[in-house]
Nucleic acid binder design. Structure first.
Lengths: 131, 131
DNA sequence: AATTACCTTTACGTTAACGTAAGGGTAACT
DNA sequence: AGTTACCCTTACGTTAACGTAAAGGTAATT
């Protein structure tokens, strides 16, 4: 794992396009260094990109993901800021717990559906045995 | 809870617009009866809409949600169909388990962030006491 | 010297999931 | 008879998250 990688290398590593990476930079989600014109990505960007894609899988908007990432390890600022920060984190937590509950319910339904399918298969087998 | 409700009533009940409901019908996610021109929604549609919104919260595309809903209690068909059905359900399960894992990780990070914030608050308090 | 393989910016195109407006119909109060 | 309150369809507009193409720069092979 090289220290400094090109945009294409990072893109390939995470199975996204270079356009996507440039777009994320544009949106303030990535901030690669520049060497001349070229972007230089480092480990920090890998970590960030991983977080971005994780957020995407959960259906978060890019600006929500940006906010989310900003929450990680950002305990600077004065008291008021910290408090509003804790509040924001709490909101996000609620959202995530809701999503988790949604997932549990869907998984339950899918379990039921699977069982239904298996029963159906059983019936089909019985019929073919009788035949 | 009335047996038959209008589009507006259903919309209000779930805090969506009538446009949204018509759009969902257009996409084959809802199939209300018609009385003349008017749509008549019943309990079945409530259930479906709930499932749709749940899917949306998890970032599923509408066509994915449609597929998902079709999985619930659809154990008809012949053997081949059932098998491909079980496979599809399994895929969805994998996806959901991935999302669940994503959520757990984010929650963990947010916990860490919260602790960081509290420590910071503690430090700020110490400083003000010293003063 | 020319092709290959990258990189850059700028800018228009695309898709999903609706929003919004236009134009018209029905049914019930006032 | 007119206003209110719904309902309908058709159709153009909007936003997010990129896709895609154009035009050009650099650096290393062939």
């Amino acid at each position: 794992m090289a220290e400094e990688i090109s945009i294409r290398q990072l893109a390939k590593e995470f199975a996204v396009t270079t356009r996507t990476l440039r777009f994320y930079e544009d949106q303030g989600l990535l901030m690669p260094e520049r060497r001349g014109q070229h972007r230089i990505f480092i480990q920090r960007d890998r970590v960030r990109l991983k977080l971005i894609l994780r957020g995407k899988r959960l259906g978060f908007k890019l600006y929500e993901i940006r906010d989310l990432i900003d929450m990680y390890g950002a305990e600077q600022g004065e008291e008021g800021q910290i408090y509003s920060f804790i509040a924001k984190i709490s909101e996000r937590k609620q959202d995530l717990l809701q999503k988790k509950a949604d997932i549990e319910e869907i998984l339950l339904e899918l379990e039921k559906a699977t069982i239904g399918c298996q029963q159906r298969l059983g019936e089909l087998n019985k019929n073919s045995e009788v035949k």
